[in-house]
């Protein structure tokens, strides 16, 4: 079988893919470190990355306690928006006039400034998890919906005509042809939205929360601790990267044919 490769070979290719990213990120950190050390800017204004990491390690327990609620809000909000986007995409695909009725509403929902909406949602739904889930869902719903609709539309006419010629009713054509055709678009949407999701969760917490990276950042700022602000930012960046990695992994698992190269053609 062409797609089972030895673990060592896999690790080697993974490393060869990763080292440019490691180099560029490492380079940025070095520049930042050098600038913070030699520019004379006080660490209370611009802390060096070494200081950010050291203080982050020192406060790791507090950081972790505040990361968990952010992860929860992100994952739950995202799950809600993906489910809702799927349901609406199916409705719109089956009842085309719905598209014209609903899309304007969804577009408007995207133009709402977070800075105005977040405090209002917190005001209405309190400091708990609910408003965070809602805000994460709000920022990620639309890209997911559009990705799915575009995915359905990308179905090859020939394939649809073929399945129809076999006597399949509309809903079977959807399941057999349109839904699988949308998979690459779905995952593209997933990768984009997951990055919005973390930012959305942090913003929602910033507007009011008992715990979470957003509120941690706000408190650290108010205590004149830019090093801890940046430590929380690093945590959120890591979190985003991890979630991004999960979506890539999910895509690889659910679309194994994408990994095939043409080199196995007989």
């Amino acid at each position: 079988m062409p797609f089972i490769r030895p673990v060592a070979a896999r690790a080697a290719t993974a490393f060869s893919r990763l080292w440019p990213a490691v180099l560029s990120v490492g380079g940025l950190f070095l520049l930042w470190e050098a600038y913070a050390q030699f520019s004379g800017i006080p660490p209370t204004t611009l802390p060096a990355p070494s200081r950010v990491l050291a203080q982050g390690a020192l406060h790791s327990q507090a950081l972790w306690d505040n990361t968990l609620p952010t992860i929860t809000a992100t994952v739950l909000g995202f799950a809600c928006s993906v489910s809702a986007a799927f349901v609406f995409s199916v409705l719109i695909d089956f009842f085309r006039p719905l598209r014209r009725a609903l899309l304007p509403v969804f577009v408007i929902s995207q133009t709402l400034p977070m800075i105005a909406i977040a405090p209002l949602v917190v005001l209405w739904f309190g400091f708990g998890l609910t408003p965070k889930i809602m805000l994460v869902a709000l920022v990620t719903f639309f890209p997911m919906l559009i990705a799915l609709l575009q995915g359905y539309a990308s179905t090859a006419d020939e394939i649809e005509q073929l399945v129809a010629s076999m006597g399949a009713p509309r809903w079977r054509i959807f399941l057999i042809a349109r839904l699988p055709s949308a998979l690459p678009f779905f995952f593209a949407g997933l990768r984009i939205s997951i990055t919005y999701a973390v930012v959305g969760a942090i913003f929602a917490e910033y507007a009011g929360a008992a715990k979470g990276l957003g509120i941690y950042i706000l408190n650290a700022k108010n205590n004149f601790r830019p090093d801890l602000v940046l430590a929380a930012v690093m945590v959120s960046a890591t979190l985003t990267l991890l979630l991004f990695g999960v979506t890539v992994l999910l895509q690889r698992l659910s679309m194994p044919w994408l990994r095939l190269s043409g080199s196995h053609k007989p």
């Binding site: 005509q161 073929l162 399945v163 010629s165 076999m166 079977r172 057999i176 042809a177």
Partner: peptide, 29 residues
């Protein structure tokens, strides 16, 4: 319809293995 139709271009589904592409019509039946 008493026809088995083969479209212009092969219309194989990328996401199905060859065996599952060939059983498509039976599956629909």
């Amino acid at each position: 319809r008493p026809f088995a139709f083969m479209p212009q271009r092969d219309a194989l589904m990328d996401w199905r293995r060859i065996i599952d592409n060939t059983t498509l019509g039976l599956e629909v039946q």
